[in-house]
Amino acid sequence: MYLLYTVLASLFCFLTLKWLKRRRFCTDSKRLDGKTVLITGGNSGIGKETAVALAMRGARVVIACRDEGRAKKAVGEIKTRSRNVDVFFMELDLANMRSIREFCKAFLQKEKRLDILINNAGMPSVLDWTDDNFSMCFGVNHLGHFLLTNLLLGRLKECAPSRVVTLTCSNYKYQKLDFQDLNYNLFPLFTYCRSKLANIYFTQELARMMEGKGVTAYAVHPGYVHSGWTCHFSILFRMVMQVVMFMFFVPCELGAQSVIHCAVSDEVTGHSGGYFADCQPASLRPFATDAGVARKLWEASERLVRLA
């Protein structure tokens, strides 16, 4: 009898974990031949899986990240898995505004098209600062992508219809923005939540500004993904989180599905400015849909990154 109870309990736990990890796959097989895709942080995790999927559809894929060695290795893997040699690396440090400006200048000189921009790179809740004295989470997750998108917006409009897909997180719901201290960095987890809320406001305001101009924008919660984000923390934390991620988090391939869906599917075009999870529109807390706050954040961000 004890053995039977053990088997049943194990089966229950297994099925529960499977249920927690259930996810939809992007079923749209639309080709992207002749299209150019830029993915920040495309050398690992969700970004790399997204790069593989879009390269398989025939897109020219540019991955932008800091580490040249890891990026070149990732480019080789993406080419092999996708059977597409049109995959390239360009150096970009989202924690440095000068690097972002230099990257955009080089990209615009080299690439004549930009059809899909995927703001994928991100920093977890770390207590650190960017080269421009912004808190690392807010500086990279929001301000870095804000400046990058704005500097490339002209090319996106030239190549319309085009899309901007920005990764966020459902953790946005645990914090609100404080315009007296957008650079808040006292509790890193709070800063992370605020940066993910900023991604949502950014997407909404971008969609509003680009209405009728052929550029659509989407914020995507990829789910809780088993990736390499723990590399920024202690060994003990990493060991504990490896167990937690194995049990409850989904693989990067599954985490990338909603991103791929928003990048390729025609179903999403009527939801510009929307928030997506599990390959479908998802609801937001009322405070995260405030158009006035979204506009105020946009104007504040313009001042912070000195965008003329």
Score class of each variant (00 low, 15 high):
Glu77Thr: 14
Glu77Tyr: 05
Glu77Leu: 08
Glu77Val: 13
Lys79Ser: 05
Lys79Trp: 00
Lys79Arg: 15
Lys79Gln: 15
Thr80Met: 07
Thr80Glu: 14
Arg81Pro: 03
Arg81Lys: 15
Arg81Leu: 10
Arg81Ile: 03
Ser82His: 11
Ser82Trp: 03
Arg83Ser: 12
Arg83Ala: 07
Asn84Thr: 07
Asn84Glu: 02
Asn84Trp: 04
Val85Pro: 13
Val85Leu: 03
Asp86Ser: 12
Asp86Asn: 15
Val87Met: 05
Val87Cys: 06
Phe88Lys: 14
Phe88Val: 11
Phe88Cys: 08
Phe88Met: 05
Phe89Val: 08
Phe89Glu: 07
Glu91Gln: 14
Glu91Tyr: 05
Leu92Val: 06
Asp93Cys: 02
Leu94Gly: 07
Leu94Asn: 08
Ala95Phe: 02
Asn96Pro: 06
Asn96Ile: 01
Met97Cys: 04
Met97Asp: 01
Met97Ala: 10
Met97Arg: 13
Arg98Cys: 02
Arg98Ser: 11
Arg98Thr: 13
Arg98Ile: 03
Ser99Val: 07
Ser99Asn: 07
Ser99Phe: 05
Ile100Trp: 04
Arg101Glu: 09
Arg101Phe: 00
Arg101Cys: 00
Arg101Ser: 10
Arg101Gly: 00
Glu102Val: 01
Glu102Leu: 12
Glu102Lys: 15
Phe103Leu: 03
Cys104Arg: 11
Cys104Thr: 15
Cys104Gly: 08
Lys105Ser: 11
Lys105Asp: 11
Lys105Met: 03
Lys105Ala: 09
Phe107Ser: 11
Phe107Tyr: 15
Phe107Asn: 11
Phe107Gln: 12
Phe107His: 12
Leu108Asn: 15
Leu108Ile: 09
Gln109Ala: 09
Gln109Val: 06
Gln109Arg: 14
Lys110His: 11
Lys112Cys: 02
Lys112Ile: 07
Arg113Gln: 12
Leu114Glu: 13
Ile116Leu: 07
Leu117His: 09
Leu117Asn: 10
Asn119Gly: 05
Asn120Cys: 06
Asn120His: 08
Asn120Asp: 08
Asn120Val: 04
Ala121Gly: 09
Gly122Thr: 04
Gly122Val: 03
Met123Ile: 12
Met123Tyr: 11
Met123Asn: 08
Pro124Tyr: 04
Ser125Trp: 11
Ser125Arg: 03
Ser125Asn: 12
Val126Ala: 04
Val126Glu: 08
Val126Met: 05
Val126Leu: 06
Leu127Thr: 09
Leu127Ile: 04
Leu127Tyr: 11
Asp128Pro: 00
Trp129Arg: 15
Trp129Tyr: 12
Trp129Met: 09
Asp131Phe: 06
Asp131Trp: 02
Asp132Asn: 13
Asp132Lys: 08
Asn133Gln: 10
